[in-house]
């Protein structure tokens, strides 16, 4: 558990660090990024379960986003890898149930189950990396304000912002408590007994909730009336954000309806 907390805390911090960058992608309106990420997920999941080659053009999206945002490739890979158990498990049972030989590769049979397993794994990697990129290139508060601007009710967005704020505090305090414990417990690094971790959580909870009450006071003292206002409301620029959405949606559409790998193969063979 200590390790998981360490990872989670580090991820939260590295995420907020990466997300406060100032690249072209970072500066995009979060609404545009939400829409494109959602369109990407729909496109990637809309292919049949035996499609592999046709998913390939979609890899251009994460590659391009990494390139344009300057986010470290290692960050994206590491955070995508965090979801690896999910990714692998999602398709793991298909090879057991779908044993139809779909294709034969130089005499080796390849069953439908393995093909769909590979397809599920690929689309998982695609979708997870796109969400990872969304969270790495957009500050969480802007991400959630974007939701509000997309029509999500304001009370939902406000309490989501609060939740987001408290999670950072909580994770930081967990980190300190765990570190203090591992310093005292000597050799066994990162191994807090689960019993102890339970009591740690209790202490942490008390502290966090006390803090939350004080934060609420601090907000009230500065005229909080239930609505959190931000100084620079998001501005959707059609030239920048609109173009971003249009270009990607057009690309996804092209990938969905045109068999690009097949055309490329034909071109390569024809030459």
């Amino acid at each position: 558990m200590a390790k998981k907390l360490d990872i989670n805390f580090n991820e939260l911090v590295s995420c907020s660090t990466a997300a406060s960058g100032s690249s072209l992608v970072h500066r995009l309106d979060p609404r545009a990024k939400w829409l494109v990420t959602l369109a990407f997920a729909v496109t990637a999941t809309s292919f049949g379960k035996y499609e592999i080659a046709r998913l390939m053009p979609l890899f251009f999206y994460p590659f391009a986003m990494i390139a344009l945002s300057g986010v470290a490739v290692a960050d994206v890979l590491r955070r995508t890898a965090l979801a690896a158990p999910f990714i692998l498990l999602a398709g793991l049972f298909n090879p057991f149930f779908d044993r139809h030989v779909l294709i034969s590769l130089w005499g080796f049979p390849l069953t439908g189950g393995w093909v769909s397993f590979l397809s599920i794994t690929l689309r998982s990697v695609l979708v997870v990396s796109s969400v990872v990129l969304l969270s790495l290139t957009t500050r969480s508060d802007r991400l959630f304000s974007g939701l509000g601007e997309l029509g999500v009710p304001s009370i939902f967005v406000v309490q989501l912002q609060f939740l987001n704020r408290y999670i950072l505090l909580l994770a930081g305090e967990v980190q300190r408590i765990v570190r203090a414990h591992s310093l005292r417990s000597g050799s066994r690094r990162n191994s807090v007994s689960l019993f102890l971790s339970g009591s740690m959580l209790g202490i942490l909870l008390l502290k966090s909730m006390d803090r939350a009450a004080r934060v609420h006071w601090a907000m009230l003292a500065r005229g909080f009336d239930g609505e959190v206002r931000t100084a620079c409301p998001l501005k959707f620029s059609w030239q920048r954000d609109g173009a971003f959405v249009l270009i990607w949606v057009a690309f996804f559409g092209a990938v969905r309806f045109i068999d690009i790998p097949f055309l490329l193969f034909g071109w390569a063979v024809g030459k």
Binding site: R165, R211, R214, V215, W217, A218, M219, R222, G223
Partner: peptide, 17 residues
């Protein structure tokens, strides 16, 4: 509350944005 400025003990509580 408009006339009062309340500075709390722990700045973390006050820097919630």
């Amino acid at each position: 509350r408009r006339r009062l400025g309340f500075i709390f003990q722990d700045p973390e509580d006050q820097l919630f944005m």
